[in-house]
């Protein structure tokens, strides 16, 4: 009785597993279609204005959480994104908006955020909000941030997501760019995404 049952379970689990990993992804990033809700936020821009996804509607949105005092991860990521966008075919370069959301509103004043965002390109938008709103937004995308104890000079480290969330032109969550991708790979993914839904 148990032997055929056991083999059945084994067969089913093997099928289930292969089924899960069967479709070899054509993306370099992680495909998150269906796993995450569409792009939605209401944040403060560097000019004090309210920024919503509609302001960048029709473009590919790259959502990234960080802070301007970030020693290495944020500058590296933003530099990689700039390079990747610059490697895109010319007609797509204006179709990508990078949304840099600072999770350190205490230190990241609008001026500071503006100059930081500008440094990484024209299509980089610096955004932030009060901590509760940031908590809601990060919760929506199943990420978080935390603060270390400040040192004697008042500097503190901030833990935050190291991935970039990619939304297509319609605002659907599509890809998660994990650290470790080359700019070439990011660029290919973005080009792929930009070409599939030009409307």
């Amino acid at each position: 009785m148990t032997r055929p049952l056991l083999s059945l379970i084994l067969a089913v689990s093997v099928l289930a597993l292969t089924g899960c990993f069967g479709d070899e992804e054509q993306w370099h990033g992680k495909d998150i279609s269906g796993l995450m809700p569409e792009l939605e936020f209401e944040l403060r821009g560097t000019g004090g204005q309210t920024v919503r996804p509609e302001d960048s509607a029709g473009t590919i949105r790259l959502l990234y959480f960080g802070f301007t005092s970030c020693p290495d991860v944020c500058p590296t990521t933003l530099t990689d994104l700039r390079k990747a966008v610059n490697q895109l075919p010319e007609n797509y370069r204006d179709d990508v908006t990078t949304l840099f959301v600072s999770v350190d509103p205490e230190r990241d004043t609008p001026e500071r955020l503006a100059s930081y965002a500008n440094f990484f390109g024209d299509h980089v938008v610096g955004l932030t909000a009060a901590e509760p709103e940031l908590r809601d937004l990060t919760k929506r995308y199943r990420t978080t941030f935390g603060y270390d104890e400040p040192d004697a000079e008042g500097n503190y480290n901030v833990s935050h997501s190291s991935a970039v969330y990619v939304f297509d032109r319609s605002g659907n969550a599509r890809l998660l760019l994990r650290p470790g991708l080359t700019t070439q790979q990011i660029s290919e993914d973005l080009a792929h995404l930009a070409s599939e839904s030009r409307s």
Binding site: F65, T138, R142, T143, T144, F145, G146, Y147, D148, N157, V158, S159, H160, S161, S162, A163, L176, R178, P179
Partner: peptide, 13 residues
């Protein structure tokens, strides 16, 4: 499990 790296930890650890 790099998801905790990707999604940020509750505190820096």
């Amino acid at each position: 499990y790099d998801v905790y790296e990707v999604c940020g930890r509750a505190w820096p650890m």
